[in-house]
Design a binder for these strands. Structure first.
Length: 583
RNA sequence: GCGUGUGUAGCUCAGUUGGAUAGAGCGUUUGGCUACGAACCAAAAGGUCGGGGGUUCGAAUCCCUCCACGCGUACCA
């Protein structure tokens, strides 16, 4: 990376200067103490390093230090200048030229780090209950998770994507009971969910179970309740487990279908139920008991999570003998570790914040390293309709992810869900996401890609004058364009290198953006970057005509267009947003 | 109350780990197509970085303290 090159030049110079005793009382320099930054004012340079912090050790004024350091540097065709304690750097043609060449050479792998400590990562996200359709909040985790998976894979890690199905516990009973009511309704019985609020909480009164009920009736060939005479097999169709199993399977099917449609691909759906059946949950409880971390109180078993930094101890087996949600979750995380993953990354909604400490505590209590678990807490999503916030989380007014995608499309939904810092509450404005105007960043970016494609098409197409019927030959033959791309010569870009400097630097920034994004797990930086790159490209396009009579200039600019297209493609691939050829 | 996140331009948000005159997009105003897609570009106006203290050469950034809002604070999942 150019900034690393610059930093290395400076650090080498400092070491030489110290050796010569030119930096006053400074006797040694440890690499990494200085870092590059972006100058506030673009006129200063492309990158800058502030050496003021060395003044304390050297006991020399910062400008003097800066000048001394610069005097030890061979600038090649780059430019170094000193203002106060800042050393500014202007990138020369060689580095710019090499950047474009690198894009052509590495192509799909442009931006992938050379050497990186790769890990075997299990990324868990969405993990919704199979009790209903996804709401828009799930959409945020789905989008962010899948982008993060793509990014980490690109970065070099081995990533295994998993969805934990909460298919055990009381909510499944609730689901079965709710389906029973819907089925009876469909069969003509005058029955409805309780109106009393506390009783109603034992049901899922949403409409989404109606089609499920219809399907249940159809498959089982039920005609009416009346035909279920006493003693015949009809009762069997209202068996609680039979109903809940059916509803659960149906919900899972719909969820999986939606995820695929939303370009989210899990390697595995891990059922909580199988975890119980395998005996792994009991095994974990036993291990905790053996290590003396369990005690009894009020008829329940408590885990001493407070020994490991949790606020208080947690119940692990209720007084009625059943397990809590946490119990299975402990076993699940231990199972992940036993499957040999170096790192577990979970994306959880901020409403699960209280769970972090207790799960980490359990991992530590069982003798594993809690630092292997990295939990990304995402703030929730607010839906904005006509400028008014519609709070999510409440069952009423629930907008499903399905509805949202149908309304605004997969591309826009993915982009909007991924474009904000995970720490901020996301306002999803449906009207804005739907527009095809400048207000919508997705279209802005896609337009840049379509524009690049369009230029490349025009370069090799003959032009027809509609009035005279006259044909002008194509500015460039297809073979020439193929040759330009496939056996790219680094010198090609030179004619336009001055006018394209900002754009090339932005292309170069892709590498540091990827690094930063992968290391901080913040995927929104990719969305920002892609907008910035599109902006630089549009700007370049308006200022410089690509197709012209000056063939060398045209080739230079076409090469740049190809480079932009490649990088946009790579970035959009990670976002799993389409890069259209035409719009 | 405690824990946690947020507070930056009219709106939505960045701010690369403490540095130069505070940065974008939208919105507003002005200008740019008989030329590669104007779904675009160029420019202007717009700020007490929630308030108040502190740390130091230097703070939107670190510490303290208030204020406002979201989320959590179950033997629910």
């Amino acid at each position: 990376m150019i900034k690393d090159y610059f930093l290395n030049e400076i650090e080498t110079a400092i070491e030489k200067a110290i050796k010569d005793g030119k930096l006053g009382e400074m006797k040694e320099y440890t690499r990494g103490t200085l870092s590059t930054e972006r100058p506030k004012n673009v006129d200063f340079g492309d990158f800058a390093i502030n050496v003021s912090s060395l003044a304390r050790h050297a006991r020399i004024a910062p400008p003097m230090i800066a000048n001394t350091i610069v005097s030890y540097i061979v600038p090649e065709d780059n430019e170094y200048s000193v203002i106060g304690g800042f050393i500014n750097f202007k990138t020369g043609k060689t580095l710019l030229k090499n950047t474009v060449a690198e894009i052509f050479k590495k192509d799909k792998n442009y931006g992938k780090p050379e050497k990186v400590k790769t890990e075997k990562i299990i990324l868990e996200y969405v993990s919704a209950n199979p009790t209903g359709p996804f709401h828009i909040g799930h959409g945020r985790w789905a989008a962010m998770g899948s982008v993060l998976a793509n990014l980490l894979k690109f970065y070099g890690h081995e990533v295994y994507q998993e969805f934990y199905i909460n298919d055990a516990g009381s909510q499944i009973t609730k689901l079965g009971n709710s389906l029973a009511i819907r089925v009876r309704q469909q069969l003509g019985e005058d029955i409805d969910f309780p109106t009393d609020e506390t009783e109603r909480k034992n049901f899922y009164p949403g409409d989404y179970l109606i089609p499920v009920a219809k399907k249940y009736i159809e498959i089982n060939k039920l005609t009416s309740l009346a035909t279920c005479g006493r003693g015949n097999e009809c009762e069997g169709y209202f068996d609680a487990k039979r109903l809940s199993d059916f509803a659960k399977a149906e919900m899972e099917r719909l969820q999986k279908e939606l995820l695929e449609n939303f370009r989210v691909h899990f390697d595995n759906f891990y059922s909580e139920l199988t975890l119980h059946k395998s005996g792994k949950v009991e095994e974990c409880v036993q291990k905790l008991k053996d290590s003396g971390k369990i005690y009894q109180k009020d008829g329940a078993d408590w885990f001493k999570s407070s020994d490991y930094g949790d606020d208080q101890d947690r119940v692990i087996k209720k007084a009625d003998g059943s397990n809590t949600y946490l119990t299975a979750d402990i076993a699940y995380h231990i199972d992940k570790l036993e499957r040999g993953f170096d790192r577990m990354i979970n994306i959880w909604g901020a409403d699960h914040h209280g769970y972090v400490a207790r799960v980490k505590a359990s991992i530590e209590a069982l003798g594993y390293d809690p630092n292997k678990l990295e939990i990304l807490l995402g703030q929730l999503v607010n839906l904005v309709i006509n400028g008014n916030e519609v709070r999510m989380g409440k069952r009423k007014n629930m907008v499903t992810l399905d509805d949202l995608i149908e309304e605004v499309g997969v591309d826009a939904t993915r982009f909007w869900m991924a474009m904000r810092n995970i720490d901020t509450t996301l306002d999803f404005d449906i009207e804005l996401a739907k527009t095809n105007s400048d207000e919508n960043p997705v279209f802005y970016v896609q337009y840049a890609h379509a524009r690049a494609c369009s230029i490349l098409r025009n370069a090799t197409e003959e032009k027809l004058n509609t009035e005279t019927g006259e044909k002008t030959p194509a500015p460039l033959s297809k073979t020439e364009l193929d040759e330009l791309i496939n056996s790219y010569n680094p010198e090609t870009i030179l004619p336009t290198i001055e006018s394209a400097k900002k754009l090339i630097l932005k292309l170069e920034e892709y590498k540091s953006m990827i690094k930063m994004s992968a290391e901080t797990r913040q995927v929104y930086t990719i969305c920002r970057y892609v907008q910035e790159l599109a902006s630089e490209f549009h700007s370049f396009y308006n200022a410089n005509r690509v197709i012209s009579d000056d063939k060398e200039m045209m080739k230079a600019r076409l090469a740049l267009v190809v480079a932009v297209k490649k990088v946009l493609n790579n970035a959009l691939d990670i976002l799993a947003v389409t890069a259209p050829e035409r719009m």
